[in-house]
Every structure is written in C-alpha cells, then in structure tokens.
C-alpha cells in the first residue's frame, strides 16, 4: 500500500495547542509541505511573531528566532540581509501584522526584502482572548467591541493584501482560504508561489489566509468554518493581487 496523505516531514510530530477546528493547524501543514517541496528546511530561519502564531517554533522543524510583537518583518530583514543565502519564513497573525506591526511589514515589503510571509487573518486577537482586531468585521462582536464593530468608532476592517500588492517590492500577494477542499488546493498553490518568490529572489511573497477562530468567535468548528464563506470572503475577496515574474525590481 502506498501512502497518499501523511504528515509533512518539516511538521514536528507533536500535538498542537490550537483549539479544535482552528485553521492554524491546516495552514501549518500547508507551509510545512512547501518547506519540504522546495527542500529548504535545512536552510530556513523562521522569524516567529506574537500571538497563537508564536508556537511556529515548536511546530516547524526549522531554526526560529522569536520577534517582539509585530516586528518579525524587521527581525527577518536583519536575518536575511546578513544571511542572503538562507530562506527566511514569517508567520504572522492579524494583530501582529495588521495592527502593531503595520510599519514593519509595509517597509519590509517596500524594500523588496525577499521574504516569505504567511499572514493568518482570523478577524480577532486569539491568544489574548478574543479582542477586536483591525480585521474584525463590521458588526462583529468581540470582547472589546461588545456592541459589534462600528465604522464610525473603529474604522473598517483593513485589507492588507490589497495594500501590499501596491508596493513595487512585492513579487507575489494573494488572499486564500482553507475552509473547503477547493480553497485548500488554491491556498497550497499560493503558499508555494510565495515560497518561489523568495527562492527566485524576486522580492517579497505574501499570502493572506482567511482563517477561523471557533473559540473566540463563539462557534463550533463547523459553524466557524462556514463563516469564512458567508461573512469573510464577501468582504475579503480571494485571489492573486500581485504576481511579478521578472526580477526587474533588483
């Protein structure tokens, strides 16, 4: 018998701390498959972020440096500039990348740092217990928007991928989801493309992944998974927003 599906080698064989149904685990598996596919495990240095995502250093079988909240694009810049031959991987949540670390991601992108950025958008601060994030949907109730997010008070959910796609330094920018088998297949393709942008030294490759947080959304895993399609995708459209094949930037 031949194994047709199994755990990727770069995904450490331990139980994750993620809640039941949380998409972080799925995304980890896809990223590990990309690490295996491009054969970069032994050349990879990860820059961990702060939030549920920090435990990438427990789950990927790679070297990892921890970063202060939101700063992993700067930390990764330091790693990559002093080690241009290494593969540098970032895995950031929406609080980390889209709020406290907005300056760091925009300027790393604008400099065209050849980094691979996995951006997990689950519209909420997960680890701190479900507070409003910059990506929280209008009307969404969180522990700090108990009446629902209201634009006159909190502004609109931020569309990071559209913003980053504007920057010349970004070689690849896409938004994907992992809520259905069809979306999963596209997500895998996008993650691979974001790896290739770095492997081919074309600039930053980033993928925003719409993700569920059943615990902090107050839903079970199935309901949370469905919310991606019914509420998130209509506001956060899926697709490839930037694909620059040539390396004319450099």
């Amino acid at each position: 018998m031949k194994q047709v599906f199994g755990r990727p080698e770069s995904l450490v064989d331990v139980a994750s701390h993620f809640c039941p149904g949380c998409h972080h685990g799925t995304i980890h598996r896809l990223v590990a498959e990309a690490i295996d596919h491009y054969g970069v495990r032994e050349e990879t240095i990860g820059a961990a972020s702060v939030g549920c995502s920090v435990f990438m250093y427990d789950y990927f079988d790679i070297d990892v440096v921890e970063s202060p909240h939101g700063r992993s694009p700067a930390v990764a810049t330091g790693v990559k500039r002093s080690n241009p031959e290494k593969f540098v991987l970032l895995y950031q949540g929406d609080g980390d990348l889209a709020a406290i670390g907005t300056a760091e991601i925009i300027h790393a992108a604008n400099r065209g740092e050849p980094l691979t950025v996995i951006f997990v958008n689950n519209t909420v601060y997960g680890m701190t217990g479900g507070q409003m994030a910059p990506t929280t949907m209008l009307g969404q109730r969180t522990t700090t928007s108990p009446y629902g997010r209201e634009f006159s008070q909190d502004g609109y959910p931020i569309k990071i991928t559209e913003m980053l796609a504007q920057l010349e330094g970004v070689a690849y920018a896409a938004r994907v989801a992992v809520d259905t088998p069809a979306h999963l297949a596209k997500a895998k393709k996008a993650i691979f493309a974001a790896f290739e942008a770095q492997v081919e030294k074309r600039g930053m490759g980033m993928v925003e992944i719409l993700s569920s947080c059943p615990t902090n959304w107050g839903m079970n895993a199935i309901e949370a998974n469905k919310r991606i399609e019914t509420e998130m995708i209509p506001y956060f459209p899926l697709g490839v927003f930037k694909e620059r094949k040539g390396s004319d930037f450099f």
Partner: peptide
C-alpha cells in the same frame, strides 16, 4: 523600532 529588531535578527 525596526532598526533594533533588524539588529536582533542579524
């Protein structure tokens, strides 16, 4: 803030 974190990375 970014520059100290680049130092951290290197």
């Amino acid at each position: 803030v970014a520059s100290i974190n680049m130092l951290l990375g290197a």
